[in-house]
Computed example of a mutant assay.
Amino acid sequence: MNIDTNMSTIITASALDGNGALYSRAKERAITRGAYTSRAPLLLRRLRLLLAPAKLRLLLGFCVFCVVVFVTSRLRYLMGWIPHDPSSVSSSSRGGYTVLINTWKRNSLLKQAVAHYASCSGTDAIHVVWSENDPPSDSLKIFLKKMVLSYSQTIHKPNFKFDINEEDNLNNRFKPIKDLSTDAIFSVDDDVIVPCSTLDFAFTVWQSAPFTMVGFVPRMHWLDKERNGLAYYKYGGWWSVWWMGTYSMVLSKAAFFHRKYLDFYTYEMSPTIHDYVTSERNCEDIAMSLLIANSTGAPPIWVKGKIYETGSTGISSMKGHSNRRNKCLNDFISLYGKMPLVSTNVKAVDARQEWFW
């Protein structure tokens, strides 16, 4: 009897914890996990209840966004529209384009430009406008021809030729070219590189409006004031375009136009403008923009795309450049007797390269 009583006392003592409460292993594990810690404040519990649906909505919204991005990226195929494959612009039936490179005493940049444009599938021919006193060396000719053959990715290798001029004159870049097999001319400076995919997209834009000018470097004009009863216009650079959201020119340093404008520039444009460009050594690009606008009565088309300038800072950074461009613009307009330029705020964008339409 005493033994049973003692055992009962031992069991009872071991079953009680330090606070006198009944002890169990389950309770000990629960305490370890925090199940018996103090409850969270009421406000915190309500906040969790409110956030749970918000998290669910956020997750569902993200899933919907992913589906929309996927569907829009495939929509052109679902609707039966497949964009031009880059190889399609180089087929003989489409003609491709002739790259017209203007260069002057920068052979290293010329080599880089020729190699790059030879690699573009739409390039049918490459012509280099050479206006230096000495003709290109035989070694340079051979080197560039070999470069064209090695860098071209198409079965039809681009034709390559130097268009040699006897005098240094900016009008040379717009002389007519014999035996062209394309209507499209891509005029470019030797220090400007346009990625092939961007160039081919611009070519498809030009095909939709082949008699306007399609390019990558927009500029603008605006009426400043009247002087002696005559309108006076100002020439605006890139920052003016960015600020105003409008443009009326694209520069020929990187632009497509129809080959007929080479004839128009040389044979039909006022000789006074030729003489002006020769004496000023500037503004041939403004002259071409005015010529095409006067012919079409329509604005040019700016193609949004990344281009790379590999040369040093050009004449646009020289002191007095803006004043000279203003003077060119107004002198040319006075010869036309009107303002041919048409302003626009439209730009062509390759939607396949954009996140949002």
Rank of each mutant, 00 (worst) to 15 (best):
A52R: 12
V67D: 11
S240V: 08
L109G: 05
D191C: 04
P83N: 02
I142G: 02
W238Y: 13
M288S: 02
A202E: 06
I142P: 05
D17T: 10
L262C: 08
E268I: 03
E166Q: 11
S343N: 04
D163A: 13
S90A: 13
L44A: 11
F65R: 10
Y97K: 13
K253M: 12
S252K: 15
H274Y: 00
A351F: 14
G305N: 06
T37W: 09
L223H: 10
G305Q: 05
D17M: 11
W104Q: 04
W239G: 12
V69G: 07
G20E: 09
T72R: 12
G305C: 00
K141Y: 01
L149C: 07
N6G: 08
K161I: 07
C120G: 09
G215C: 00
K319G: 07
S14T: 14
S92L: 02
T32W: 02
H221F: 10
F65S: 14
K27W: 04
Y97F: 10
S334K: 06
S279K: 13
I82Y: 11
D85Q: 11
T37F: 10
A298N: 07
D4W: 11
M269I: 09
V303Y: 06
S38G: 12
Q207D: 06
I11A: 06
I126L: 06
D134A: 15
L60K: 13
W243K: 15
V114R: 01
F257P: 00
V67T: 11
W104R: 07
T32G: 08
T182Y: 00
T9W: 10
D263A: 08
A54G: 05
T313W: 10
H221C: 03
D331Y: 02
P299F: 03
I292A: 01
P158C: 08
P340T: 07
Y232N: 14
L199Q: 03
L110M: 03
W238F: 14
M7Y: 14
L110K: 05
N133I: 14
R45D: 00
F65A: 11
V89A: 09
G297Q: 04
P218C: 06
L78F: 12
I3C: 09
H321S: 09
F332T: 03
V64S: 07
N133M: 15
N323P: 03
T103P: 03
L291W: 01
L251R: 08
R106T: 15
D350N: 06
N282S: 12
T98I: 09
I286M: 00
A54P: 05
W206L: 08
C196F: 15
W357F: 12
